[in-house]
Nucleic acid binder design. Structure first.
Lengths: 190, 190
DNA sequence: CGTAGCATGTAAAACGTTACATGATTAA
DNA sequence: TTAATCATGTAACGTTTTACATGCTACG
């Protein structure tokens, strides 16, 4: 899936400039593109050539001119087509699991530190997500169904981090129990 | 983080050829690189130049010659350094959430279909993960601690998909309740 | 007087995937 | 005889990130 579908989605909701789209991508937790100029401006140009969007230049006195992009009938059709295409499984990259895989090379203390660092990182992410949700943009003319949908998207992200937090706590607990077992072994005479 | 650290990790465990590494990446659920030739062979060559690994060519009669790579002292040091670097938050891309975001454009029936398709996809992923875990490679000379670590890595992946499954069921339920509410509204005289 | 915001775009580098190329052996 | 496994490598292409380039306004 490309950034084009996401842009069509945003434009279906509200006509925007490239600059505005960029900020939306930066602020969104689930529209995962970094929102760099290169991707957005190029995508908009391509989509204009394909007649999925149209643009209108607006001259301003106190700021540089801007190009407001709007979705076309054709673009809306393309968006709906994509919405009904078969959903993909999430793509998840947890670098921490790769680190953990070889962490038997570390001492108990180093491992313990590593785990608590990850727990703190996840806690931080959770807080940031909660903050983002509170200040999230609310779409105009929202139906009850659309509100529900957006609430469930937020709930998904929060529950993902919560699940990770539960897991890391469990992992720390189990590794601690294991350590205690080892000490007992050492104290026991052979 | 690059594929190099993951390769160092595998080599710390067991000397391998590029071909073997490729298969390990393909089979692993948490070492998320696709395991294509280009990445692996190039990384190995770079790492040999940096003296992180050494290679030994072994000629075989019934198969083509192979290059067995081993980790060096320097490589092991580099690996340990990486293990103790601060852990990153997971990188999660859920295309489905982007689709869901604009799905108010769909009819109740289409939306419902979309949700159940996603539920099936996640169920499939869960089954595949369980299958992978059953046939997973078990490392030689494993300490109790290392076994525990690997068990927790598997548990992480399973719980991630399970969490997604719980969420999609909840979401379907809530959207269904919402539909019922709407029908009642329609039946009610204005 | 420097920094941040508004606003659009391009260039270069890094990273990733797919496909190409070769060639022997083995199992269906 | 066709496909799969073993085994290493390169070329072409596609995507993503980072940096460059411009220039005005507003705020501290």
């Amino acid at each position: 899936m490309s950034i084009q579908s996401a842009i069509l989605g945003i434009l279906s909701w509200k006509s925007s400039t490239g600059y505005e789209l960029k900020k939306i991508f930066e602020d969104s937790s689930f529209m995962y593109w970094s929102g760099n100029n290169n991707q957005i401006y190029k995508a908009l140009m391509n989509m204009e050539e394909e007649s999925l969007v149209t643009s209108e230049v607006v001259h301003q006195t106190n700021s540089p001119s801007k190009k407001i992009y709007s979705i076309t009938e054709e673009g809306l059709l393309e968006l709906k087509k994509w919405l009904m295409s078969s959903p993909e499984a999430p793509e998840i990259k947890k670098t921490f699991l790769v680190q953990l895989a070889w962490s038997d090379l570390l001492s108990n203390q180093q491992l313990s530190e590593m785990l608590s660092n990850y727990e703190n990182e996840i806690k931080l992410q959770l807080m940031m997500q909660n903050e983002k949700n509170r200040r999230a943009l609310h779409s105009p003319n929202r139906s009850a169904r659309e509100s529900l949908i957006w609430d469930m998207i937020s709930a998904n992200i929060i529950s993902t981090y919560n699940n990770e937090l539960i897991w890391i706590r469990e992992t720390r607990q189990k590794l601690l129990e294991n350590e205690v077992g080892e000490e007992t072994d050492n104290e026991r005479p052979n």
